[in-house]
Design a protein around this nucleic acid. Structure first.
Lengths: 342, 342
DNA sequence: CTGTTAGCGCCTTCAC
DNA sequence: GTGAAGGCGCTAACAG
């Protein structure tokens, strides 16, 4: 019976380099306080390389009470925004030697129980929260866990750690784009009004109107949720509401815009000839819609990256971090927007 | 200075129940060979519950040389197919007390190095391989790691562990649907011809033609890749190729179908009046395309779930598993298919 | 400059 | 039926 081939351990390396295990540990973790002859250091490094030594995160974690893993909680994967947040988070985690555990919150699950599972069962060192269903219950639940966490793509009262994009500025740009095309009746499909993103985008919409000297008309703003079904329902509501039809629509979401466009098509209302459409957050599906959708492009993956990096720095005590708002937003003009007819 | 509140350990539970630590371990892990009075057992279980005890996977893993984590390697998240595979895998992992590490392979990365990182650095207990870029190099790399793995959504020579959907049967159904509408010139956007999925879907396409007594015409089959850009390019190639235009198209992918439709629109070719379109694998974007896309719905998340469950069973030595093909496929008829004109 | 000691939390073995 | 001992691989504290 042959001996099972183990991964090399720190003492294998130590033996091969002719030193003790702690010496190896300190050299490989680049301990500044550890003085060692260059020759010895090199011997250790070589030995580690020759054996293809990889420290066991488990043993290390047991010793230092950390897992070097992070949990990210997301409401849905099949959504360009969340997928890109995860891309960024994954890259940042890998860059710092951390693993990323993904927990997907299905609609019927309680968010608090997911946070708890990640922290208590998986023992993640920190949480990246890309879903915050209910600020009233979610934030207290998070705080009670007494674990580092960062909010991505949302802020909440009393939570200093967050990374967001410039929802308001980007929304204002969308409106400015429509105004520049001559539109004066601009509707807004407004997400879920109590949510952070929706509030910001609405504010940007209003700021854009104001700057153009247009009056805000409550009848042109409809709650839409973030999904295509929500966008479709909102569009229908707007058409049925009896208000004079807008010549342009700014949707709070790419998917909501897509849903709205499918309703317009059913109703025989042409885009962009009869009504122009702009969505918020770019994504590859914008290109296959009919017509291709003009959007506001935002640095979503950068948001995931920065949130994760900041969280790791915080965990490692390197620095406190405070909220960040990533400024860059950009209009991507495609075929769904056109000058207002006559 | 207050003492840092630790998670409860096994000896905390033991103390509270008035027994020794090993007794707790054996009761909670339901050790069959361990006989204990019901009363004692209950005391232990109660104590664990009261303290909200969660065994440390790290300590446990260190002892038994396992991490209770699985790695899933996926080429892209922002793709309905992969997102749904991950949903299924995540659910299965959670059901069995495992964590799921997601590694996203960006196009410039070497697949072998990802597998290796997951196994050597993260020490996952097994690998769920949802991307297999190159069978020639990928499979040997995987085997060399000497770790359990399962292929999802693909097979490869010499790999007994896989879970796939019925690509061939589903494709045949797509063709049958078109044939039933009277179509006789049916083109196929064929993915990447050397890949498993593409081969199966092509086979299903040919089987469907044959059954209808139609002859296979090589000029109607165009390599398309799996993305919308690939679908668009293939569509353009087909239109420019000089072959008589088909009245229907079966695309190997949802995204390829979307890309193809955007080209048809640019060319003023109407769907479904001039040409019908069917995509493979359903997804929510099928509903927002113009017109909504008829697709073949397949049990993608089930595939992720079963692959992961089987992998875990295999890791735990409960049983050997062999390849599974999930049979159910179903046509979802939307507005992109219609009877052939006259 | 480098080695020794001890212990993180758990599970397996063996003795009681 | 139950407890004591030992060790998984690593690192912090302390000796040399």
């Amino acid at each position: 019976m042959r001996k099972k081939s183990h991964s090399p351990t720190i003492s294998d390396v130590a033996k091969r380099a002719g030193v003790s295990a702690p010496a190896v540990s300190r050299v490989l973790s680049a301990d500044k306080d550890f003085v060692v002859r260059d020759e010895t250091r090199q011997r250790i490094i070589d030995a580690a390389k020759e054996l293809n030594y990889q420290p066991s995160q488990m043993a290390r974690g047991l010793r230092v009470s950390r897992t070097f893993s992070l949990g990210i909680v997301t409401p849905e994967l099949d959504n360009p925004v969340h997928a890109r947040i995860i891309y960024g988070a994954e890259r940042a985690a890998a860059d710092h030697g951390y693993s990323l555990l993904i927990a997907h919150r299905s609609p019927d699950m309680d968010e608090a129980s997911i946070y708890e599972r990640l922290v208590r069962h998986n023992r993640v060192d920190g949480l990246i929260v890309a879903t915050l269903q209910d600020e009233q219950t979610g934030v207290p639940a998070l705080k009670k866990l007494d674990h580092p966490f960062v909010l991505v793509n949302r802020k909440a009262k009393g939570v200093p750690h967050y990374v967001v994009i410039d929802d308001e500025g980007g929304s204002k740009k969308a409106v400015e784009h429509l105004v520049a095309l001559g539109h004066r009746r601009i509707a807004h499909l407004a997400g879920e009004s109590h949510r952070y993103n929706a509030k910001c985008r609405l504010r940007g919409y209003r700021a854009g109107l104001k700057e153009a000297g247009l009056v805000y008309e409550a009848g042109l703003v409809v709650e839409s949720g973030y999904s295509q079904n929500g966008g479709a329902a909102a569009m229908r509501e707007l058409l049925d509401s009896g208000v004079k039809r807008p010549t342009a629509i700014f949707a709070a979401t790419l998917l909501a815009a897509a849903g709205a466009m499918s309703v317009l098509r059913e109703e025989g209302i042409r885009v962009p000839e009869d009504v122009s459409m702009v969505g918020f957050n770019d994504g590859s599906i914008a290109e296959v819609l009919a017509p291709p959708l003009t959007t506001v492009r935002t640095p979503i993956d950068e948001m995931g990256y920065q949130a994760t990096s900041a969280l790791i720095k915080h965990i490692e005590g390197d620095e406190e971090f405070v909220g960040t708002t990533l400024p860059s937003t950009e209009i991507v003009v495609r075929a769904s927007t056109a000058p207002v007819s006559q």
